[in-house]
């Protein structure tokens, strides 16, 4: 065991991995800042207001100013809270919303970890997201956060079921769990067209999974103050905020990969296919994010029983039926991908 083998076996591969992680996470974090700005600007336009327009040209540096302001404030930990869990919860939320990016393919071969079970990994990471919220609600030792956490846990578990079935429908058409192969399978037609109902179900479930309006009951201002992060301030609040927006972008990329052909151009003809794949990917993600914001600006908040009814009584039977229909269709017309 000499120093040379350490260099080759540990430092160089470890350094490369860390550099790659940085190359993925830095753009993600910066785009989170601009997403917050874009959301405020789009909402302002919808409501005939100006939106942020003071910090920097067109107010474009507003989110950075806000982040700086929040980070310099005092971090208050409530006296009766469970301190370790209280501080751990925002960190877990943030880490989980960034961990999913490891398997997202931005363009052919532009992926940090091209694993065989990429979509399962994304599903697993997004199903862990509920822990940050439950832990925050419990550790705050206060009524409003606890109610918010309970609502959130029930909501995320319910909508995960239909998201699972939607993913299964797509996987039936692909025959692989690898995200790059899911994108390549859409070269002839994006899955959004043959699987349109599933696309809609997935998009609405993604809204519920990321606790966005019209399903933002965990942080329902009019009844629960600020829901599970009522007691949070300063840096730990920033982590929750960033985590929520990062997981929004992650869910949008997941939608793009599953239904809108990832890095593929809409038509494989000259001026369109000359554009690099990563540009198409970013354009599609921005489109889905715009839908997220548009929905927020347009729809009123659901009542909690309506939310549960939609998840269990409409989406679950619909997606289950569609799994059976898709499987039957593939068998009847002998279109099962790479059958054994």
């Amino acid at each position: 065991m000499n120093s040379f083998s350490y260099l080759n076996d540990l430092i160089i591969p470890g350094g490369i991995i860390i550099a790659q992680i940085m190359a993925v996470l830095m753009p993600v974090l910066i785009s989170v800042a601009f997403l917050v700005y874009a959301e405020r600007k789009v909402l302002a336009l919808i409501q005939l207001r100006r939106g942020p327009n003071v910090v920097g040209p067109f107010g474009i540096l507003q989110s950075f100013a806000d982040a700086l302001k929040l980070l310099t404030k005092e971090n208050i930990v409530p006296a009766n809270s469970n301190k370790i869990v209280f501080l751990l919860a925002p960190i877990i939320t943030m880490v989980l919303s960034l961990a999913g990016w490891a398997v997202i393919p931005f363009a052919p071969n532009w992926v940090l970890a091209d694993i065989n079970v990429g979509i399962m990994y994304l599903f697993a990471v997004s199903s862990l997201g509920v822990y940050g919220i439950i832990m925050a609600g419990w550790a705050s030792n206060s009524q409003y956060p606890f109610l918010g956490a309970l609502r959130s846990a029930a909501q995320m578990v319910s909508y995960e079921v239909s998201i699972g079935f939607v993913i299964i429908t797509v996987l039936l058409c692909v025959g692989s769990l690898n995200l790059s192969k899911i994108v390549e399978a859409q070269e002839t037609v994006w899955f959004a067209i043959p699987l349109l109902p599933m696309f809609v179900v997935f998009f609405i479930s993604a809204l519920a999974e990321t606790n966005r309006l019209p399903f933002d009951l965990p942080e329902d201002e009019s009844t629960l103050v600020a829901g599970f992060f009522t007691e949070y301030s300063s840096a730990s609040f920033v982590l929750f905020f960033l985590g929520e927006y990062a997981s929004m972008i992650l869910m949008s990329s997941m939608t793009v990969i599953l239904f809108m052909g990832g890095w593929l151009p809409p038509f494989d003809i000259f001026p369109l296919n000359a554009v690099p794949g990563v540009i198409w990917f970013v354009i599609k993600v921005i489109f889905i994010l715009f839908l997220f914001i548009w929905v927020r600006g347009t729809f009123p908040r659901y009542r909690y029983d309506q939310l549960m009814r939609l998840g269990w009584k409409i989406f679950l039977p619909l997606s289950l039926l569609w799994v059976v229909l898709t499987a039957g269709f593939l068998i009847v017309f002998d279109m099962v991908p790479n059958s054994l």
């Binding site: 065989n116 079970v117 399962m120 990994y121 599903f123 697993a124 199903s127 509920v130 578990v157 995960e160």
Partner: peptide, 15 residues
């Protein structure tokens, strides 16, 4: 055993 790993997280941890 990547499939088992992910199923463990989804089923046991996630649900």
């Amino acid at each position: 055993a990547e499939f088992l790993a992910m199923i463990l997280v989804v089923v046991y941890v996630g649900a």
